[in-house]
Simulated scan of single mutants.
Amino acid sequence: MKVEFAPLNIPLARRLQTTAVFQWVFSFLLLAQCCIGIFICLVLARVWLLLALYVLWLYLDWETPQAGGRRWEWVRNWPVWKYFKDYFPIRLVKTCDLDPQHNYIMGFHPHGVLVAGAFGNFCTNYTGFKELFPGLTPYLHILPFWFRCPFFREYIMSVGLVSASKKSVNHVLSKEDGGNVSIIVTGGAEESLDAHPGSLTLNILKRKGFIKVALKRGAHLVPVFSFGENELFQQVSNPKGSLLRCVQERLQRIMGLAMPLFHARGIFQYSFGLMPYRMPIHTVVGRPIPVKETSHPTQEEIESLHQQYLGALQELFEEHKKRYGIPEHESLIFI
C-alpha cells in the first residue's frame, strides 16, 4: 500500500484542528482505561488519604450522572472544541423554532462510529446551539458504564454528558417550566456496527423506550439527522451473518459496548490510522412532534407515536438529502 504523507506546509490552523480531533479520539478510546490505570497506581503506591477522599467523593456523588450531571461551561468553551468543530467541519442546522416552555427528546440518527456530530453540537458551545435554540439546555445521554470509571466520569460530566438510564432521562425531562432537551442516540451502540460510508440503515423499529418516556413526561419529540456521520471512517466488512458480525453482536450483548473495527487516516499521513476523515457533518434538527402527557400510555398509543416519529424522521431526511449529497433514489432503511 502506498502511503500518502501530509505536506509540510500545512497551515497552523489545520494542524491545531488535527491535534484537537486526536485528543478527542484518544479520550473516546483510551482515556477511561488511563484513568483506571492511574487509580490502580494510586492503590499500589498506597496513597491512602487521597484514595479515601476520592472513594468518599464517589460514594456521595454516585447518583449525579443520573441527576442532570455537573456541566462546566468553562470546559464546554475550551478553544480546543472550536478546532474540533472546524476539522470536519460540523454544522448545526435549524429548521424551526423550539418553544423553551416545553421539554424535548431529540432522537439523534445515525450513531456513526464515534458519534462526532452529537458531541460537537451538544457537548461544546461552538456550533451555536444556545443561539439557535435560546432557553434550551441540551443533555447528551451515553451508556451508564462510562460513569463508573474513576476520574473519567468527572471529565465527561463537565461537557454535559449524562447517563442513558431511564432514571436519568426522567430527571432531565422533569423540569416543570420546560427548557431541557434529552438527546438520545436511539440506535445505540448496536447501530455503530452498520456505520459504513453510504449506509442509511437505522436500528429503530424495536427502539420504543424513548417514545414511552416522551408520553409519560409530555416531552415533545424532535427527529435529528446528522448527514455525514457515517462517512468519517471505513469499517471492516461485517455483513449480517458473518463470523465477525456474530462475534461483535455477542460482545455487544455481554458488555453493552459495540466493537466496530474501523480505520481512516493518520496524523501525518492520509492512508491509514484511527483519525476520522475530514468530511462535513450537517446535523439537521427537525420539527417537533407535540406529545400530550399520558401517565399510563397504552401499547397502541406507543405504537402510534412511534410510527408518527418514523414518518417525521423519514420526511426530514427526504427534505434535506439532496442538499447534502445523498442521491435521489436513496432512502432510510429501518430495521
Rank of each mutant, 00 (worst) to 15 (best):
I302W: 02
F151W: 10
E303I: 11
Q252A: 09
G69L: 08
L132N: 06
Q314S: 15
K167T: 13
F225A: 07
F334K: 00
S163C: 05
I38M: 10
G256E: 01
F22P: 00
H141T: 15
A164N: 10
Y270I: 01
L49P: 00
A67D: 06
D99S: 12
G69C: 07
A189D: 11
I302G: 04
K167I: 08
L193P: 00
F5A: 12
I281Y: 03
L221R: 11
V247S: 02
E131M: 01
G178K: 08
I142K: 01
R323T: 15
W57Y: 15
D99L: 03
V284R: 05
L44A: 13
P260W: 06
S199A: 13
L132W: 01
Y54N: 03
S199V: 12
V224Y: 05
G228T: 09
E249S: 08
A214Q: 05
M255G: 05
Q314C: 05
M275Y: 09
R323K: 15
P100H: 09
V159L: 03
P89K: 09
L193G: 02
T283P: 07
C34H: 10
E328A: 14
F22G: 00
K2G: 02
Q234S: 11
I335H: 09
L143H: 13
E231N: 12
R265S: 02
L44H: 07
H320D: 00
V75R: 06
S192R: 03
C149N: 08
S331I: 11
